[in-house]
Amino acid sequence: MQKFAVFTGSCQSLPVVQYLLQTNQLACVVLVDGQPNPDLMQLQQWLKQQNITTLPYSKNGDDALLSQLDRLAVNCGVVYLFRHKIRKPLMQYFNGELMNIHPSPLPEYRGPQPLYWQLRNGETLTKLTMHQVTQELDCGDIACDVEIDIHPFDTIQCLYQKTSQALLHLISQYCELKQNNQLALCKQTTEYTKLAPALQPSDLVVNWSTCNTSDIVNMAKAGNLDRFCAQLIFRQSTFQLLQASKVECVLKGITPGTIIELGLKSGLIVKTHDGAVKLDILGATQGCFDGYRFALLFGLEPGLVFDNDVAVNSR
């Protein structure tokens, strides 16, 4: 009999928890060790209402957790949105039956921010991949995966929702393969070109001298209304770029980052080194504005140039 422990810290893992609960395969949920946030608190409340056993993960060691897992007869595990690296004693306890869910077509986009970088790089297809947990992150053998289309208008929140919806298909596929003794693990290839590293402040700033039009449009989608929102620098103040659109432009000899057009109908259009981009929606402490209203509020006009420097503080 398969008895799963789900390692998580987010409500986005609920499709996995609910499936295992409904199929009588859930033993417990292991929660992250850290300060509560709204997402984690909502998850804890739901688990309590469902009378699901929860176990705390300790940053200091695995002995207590291993004892509790053994008492509950846990023999399988699933890790999703769990911000701790699993230590060797836990891996040994599960003996190859501990799986991680990673939202990318592994081995591409290994790292902590796979969805962000896939949007930023303009990918049109991703996968939700279940693989064995190993000491080297995101490198374990692949058990199964589910394809997810990325629409040209998808933001990071859209992609979060799509991956959440695909979780049920993934976990049910995995469990059925195991139950029917049809699960065949596949080693990851050693050839890959794209990673998903942790984001640095400089990664979020639109650098007009290096970013082309597609880069800027994708940066806005990847960080839209998220903590990794794209940023514009103007007069040493930082503003959020929430949406941008490509504009055909044949003008030459104009410094990238220069405002080349501003109008009620045309909006706020800025030159890039390969064309131009319309700044559709921008954010500031005063609120969110379309490009035209934003320009009027903050005194922008044609001929002015956005900065490339990274501001220390956000406005």
Rank of each mutant, 00 (worst) to 15 (best):
Q2S: 08
G111I: 12
P302M: 06
Y192A: 12
C158T: 15
N75T: 15
Q173D: 14
G253S: 11
T54H: 01
P15R: 03
C28W: 08
L282G: 09
H273N: 08
N224Y: 13
L264Q: 14
D280T: 13
I254P: 07
M219G: 01
N308K: 01
Q50C: 14
D138T: 05
P89Y: 03
L225K: 10
K246D: 00
T258G: 05
T155Q: 11
A143E: 09
D138Q: 05
A230F: 13
I156K: 04
Q188A: 06
E261R: 13
V6E: 07
L106C: 08
N51H: 14
Y160N: 10
S13N: 09
L119R: 04
I260Y: 00
R227G: 11
G299P: 09
A244Q: 12
S202N: 05
D309Q: 12
Q286V: 07
V6N: 08
Q68H: 10
R110D: 11
L20M: 01
Q188L: 08
G263S: 13
V29C: 08
N75I: 03
Y116E: 02
L300E: 06
D33L: 01
Q161K: 15
L279I: 00
A184V: 15
I269K: 01
L264Y: 08
C211S: 10
L225C: 04
P105A: 11
T255A: 07
K278D: 04
G77F: 03
Q92H: 10
C175S: 14
P114G: 12
Q45A: 13
Y116H: 03
T54M: 02
N100E: 11
N121K: 13
A311E: 01
L14G: 00
K85H: 07
K178Y: 01
Q157R: 07
K278W: 06
N180D: 15
F94T: 01
K48E: 10
A311C: 07
T53V: 14
A64W: 00
C76M: 13
V74E: 00
I156Q: 05
I150V: 03
F289T: 10
G61R: 08
A230K: 11
Q157P: 00
